Amino acid sequence: MGVASITESIQYLTFKLADEIFALDVAKVREILEVTTITKVPQTPDFMRGVINLRGSVVPVVDMRLKFGMSMTEQTVNTCIIVVEISLDGDSLVLGALADSVQEVVEMEAEKIEPAPHIGTKLNTDFIRGMGKVDDHFVMILDIDRIFSSAELADLT
């Protein structure tokens, strides 16, 4: 889903990974949690930090910084888990995304969102819906359904 499919103003939850600001459609966000005990699961990808118990349900937690090739998320008072619902091959999967901090919910109009940059042919940017601007800062708007491949998520379920 590219910028052309964004036709009206949408609310986005903004969050930080290192010094960069990212955004997710609030419709995909279930809740935001303080970091709790994450149980490591053996033989999972590096970005998979483990699982948490969310009211009796096992929810996989991924480190978004590691997924994007950054250093591992260090736990601070602002570190949180953004619980999102991902669509995968017609099914729905609940996933926790570890972020350095949650910023705010912002509303962006379609005409204020630029298409995702094309950075060569080997770099996959399909998971970036577009680039928005909030308070003179660029915000990468993510398509959470496209960040992880089916094979990666199959390992988590």
Rank of each mutant, 00 (worst) to 15 (best):
V134H: 14
V102Y: 09
D143S: 07
R146K: 13
V134R: 04
A110T: 06
F148Y: 08
V61A: 02
D100P: 11
G96Q: 02
L93R: 03
T121K: 09
D143L: 04
I144C: 01
D91Y: 07
H118C: 08
D63V: 10
L153A: 08
G120W: 06
N53W: 03
S57Q: 11
F68I: 10
S101D: 08
M70G: 15
F148A: 00
M70K: 15
T125R: 03
I144A: 03
V83D: 09
F47G: 02
V61W: 08
S57H: 12
K122W: 04
F148G: 10
D155P: 05
A154I: 04
T73I: 14
L98D: 13
I82R: 01
D63W: 03
V134F: 09
T125Y: 07
L66I: 11
P117S: 01
V59R: 00
P117N: 03
V51G: 09
V58P: 12
M64I: 11
A99W: 07
L66N: 05
V102W: 09
F68M: 15
V102E: 10
P60G: 01
G130E: 06
V102P: 06
A110R: 04
P117R: 00
R49M: 11
D100T: 10
S87Q: 14
V62W: 05
Q103T: 14
N124H: 12
T73M: 02
K122D: 15
I147T: 04
G69F: 14
V58Q: 10
F68W: 06
M131T: 14
G130M: 06
N78T: 02
M108K: 07
D100K: 04
P60M: 00
